[in-house]
Nucleic acid binder design. Structure first.
Length: 382
DNA sequence: TCTGGGGTCCTAGGACCC
DNA sequence: TCTGGGGTCCTAGGACCC
């Protein structure tokens, strides 16, 4: 999808069409999606909202509405599934479709691509771009070339000609750090990378990453389109404070709030996890993390919270200027795959049941139906 | 008032086991 | 007195993507 969040917003606010618009967080936030009109002013995704406002004061800024984007995404993926069952979801607004085998039924890939674009425009009112190529890497890069609202095909014989003139940062998977390193080696175009010995790249970037870089530069990509929904490997949540703080009581309350968010999502998804990671970001943007692995997987708010507090203590912070905290639970498993093993000295019924009851009440009466006393007091005093 | 929040994957060292 | 090779698990950090 092109400027997906903005496109969804424009459906319900058509009067904003043709104007600079961006979606993003107002307070200490960043731009998530910018209309092409806003991009003309230099506004782009990832940039701070402050900067975006300065670049284009007349732009309309919209707070994100993830439920709406998810609903639109479901609609788009429903369209994909009518084309082929071989759909690999990359994100809310991006997918790979394996068109091997659709030719007899639906015609040439270009025709299929245009069909998809027409269906998405008609049924969802959203523009999208299609890249067609023999491999995922080239298809992804073709779709970038196709934007906005276009289609671009790279035939097998055209891969090198398409790839080599482009600059290294256009490679999918090459970000700022790798770009800078490549530049220091004197490599600027993909052709430069291709004509560098693989062993040189491997020395600079490691055996694996270096080898992959060289293969990318020659368009070699053996990855298949994998239709199965990838199961989540971790569940996490983080929050940037309204302003930096050194109040550890406040931080602990935020950790509890974050633990509630993470574990209630885990219970909803019916997963449990063993490793709890606490991430801290300081006022100077330095970011550190500590993790610990529990003896058994859990989805209990109190266990995750207790682990987070232990990790916080392990940092031995003195008057920290904290900007953000985050909790992530890794190594998650389907709850049905796990034999629950209550600790020997713990009562069979306890927090687990209380949390399930709270989840049920929240599902029925809304997010404020039940909450921790600590958080309630906190909310009341602020 | 510079710099979010959801993730994945890789590397590297140390502990520990056989 | 010297000291292998293979493997897993845990922890910390970093790059990258949308």
């Amino acid at each position: 999808m092109d400027a997906f969040y903005v496109a969804v917003e424009l459906r319900r606010r058509p009067e904003l069409r043709g104007r600079p618009v961006w979606v993003g967080g107002a307070n200490r936030g960043v731009v998530l999606s910018a209309s092409y009109e806003a991009r003309a002013f230099g506004v782009e995704g990832g940039m701070s909202s402050t900067r975006a406002r300065r670049l284009c004061p007349d732009a309309v800024a919209i707070n994100p509405d993830y439920d709406a984007y998810e609903a639109a995404s479901d609609g788009v993926f429903a369209i994909f599934s009518t084309i082929t069952p071989h759909v690999e979801r990359v994100s809310l607004d991006e997918a790979f479709l394996d068109l091997t085998g659709t030719r007899r039924l639906l015609g040439e890939p270009e025709e299929v691509g245009e069909l998809i674009r027409a269906l998405v425009a008609d049924e969802q009112g959203i523009p999208c771009s299609v890249g067609i190529a023999p491999t995922k890497l080239i298809a992804k890069m073709s779709s970038n070339r196709a934007k906005p609202n276009g289609l671009f095909r790279v035939h097998p014989g055209e891969v090198i000609g398409f790839l080599h003139p482009q600059t290294v940062e256009k490679i999918w998977g090459v970000g700022p750090a790798t770009t800078e390193k490549l530049h220091k080696l004197g490599l600027h175009t993909i052709a430069d990378v291709a004509h560098t010995p693989k062993s040189t790249l491997q020395r600079a970037f490691g055996a694996r990453a270096g080898g992959e870089l060289w293969e990318c530069a020659w368009g070699i990509d053996g990855r298949r389109v994998v239709a199965t929904e990838p199961t989540d490997r971790s569940v996490g949540s983080q929050e940037t404070f309204g302003k930096d703080t050194d109040d550890l009581d406040f931080v602990r309350a935020e950790l509890l709030r974050t633990s509630v968010r993470v574990t209630s999502r885990m219970r909803l998804a019916r997963v449990v996890g063993r490793t709890v990671t606490l991430t801290l970001r300081f006022a100077d943007f330095r970011t550190v993390q500590k993790s610990l692995t529990l003896p058994y997987p859990t989805d209990a708010t109190d266990e995750v919270y207790a682990a987070a507090v232990r990790l916080l203590r392990a940092f031995r912070l003195e008057r920290p200027r904290l900007r953000r905290v985050g909790i992530r639970v890794e190594h998650v498993l389907d709850v049905d795959q796990v034999a629950t093993q209550p600790a020997l000295d713990e009562p069979e019924r306890g927090w687990r049941e209380a949390e399930r009851a709270a989840d049920a009440a929240i599902a029925r009466f809304g997010p404020h139906a039940v909450s921790r006393a600590t958080l309630t007091r906190r909310a009341g005093s602020v």
